[in-house]
Amino acid sequence: MIKFINASKWFNNHHVLKNINLEISKGEVVVICGPSGAGKSTLLRTINRLERIDDGEIVVDSKYLSDPKTNLTTLRAEIGMVFQHFNLYPHKTALKNITLAPCKVRGLTRKQARERALKLLERVGLLHRQDAFPSQLSGGEQQRVAIARSLAMEPKVMLFDEPTSALDPELITDVLDVMISLAKEGMTMVVVTHEIGFAQKVADRVVFMDAGEVLEVGCPPDIFINPQHERTREFMSKVFHIPIFTKPQEEGE
């Protein structure tokens, strides 16, 4: 579904993605974690070409991103993205936020789009808030609307960039529940997050990044509990707030 081939990116001499090779197949849930500035967001944003890569190649849905013939707009319509800061359109109600793109891009009639939007709002548990403006919604509600907005395009892939890190702790679970149910339905998902619980529950693989490199890829227990790299181990111990194991024996935390 998504394939990085030797992808590299620079921001003014700053090498933020170094030779990334990664393949994500259909229906897979991949969690990306790593310290701040590791290039996780950049990696995610290159998938729908909000950032271009300078070297290498990215293939999405068997289309080459660097190919001038690839229609970015139609490709992006197949890729949903959820941002850390929601990015809801402040001048439109929750419902309008969701129906806008289906109407304008997919060419649905208002009625069809509305029906679809109401179903999605119900699914994220916000049917009663359909006429609220983003400024009247709490962070968790905004993020769930944002997820519904992406889903309204019936994407093949969903990208999540730290969807819960701007939320209060008690609001996080609502958002995570939506994401978990999505994962269980077989959506292809790439999620940047530090929610270990989420990763352990639904992730098929975890990618650990540092300084623009993919250091380790593996199933969640391997990465979280039994990391191979010194750097990964150090990071995980900080996330779990426990001293570094030299020889991990016990299970879980």
């Binding site: 909000l50 707009t73 992006r76 990015n87 359109y89 793109a101 891009v105 907005r149």
Partner: peptide, 23 residues
């Protein structure tokens, strides 16, 4: 206008022109 607005619109498959016009 925060840059994220344009990005959100582009991600949902709108063209630049549409994103500009509606968002």
């Amino acid at each position: 206008v925060p840059r994220g607005q344009m990005e959100a619109a582009l991600t949902s498959g709108m063209t630049r022109y549409q994103a500009m016009k509606f968002i």
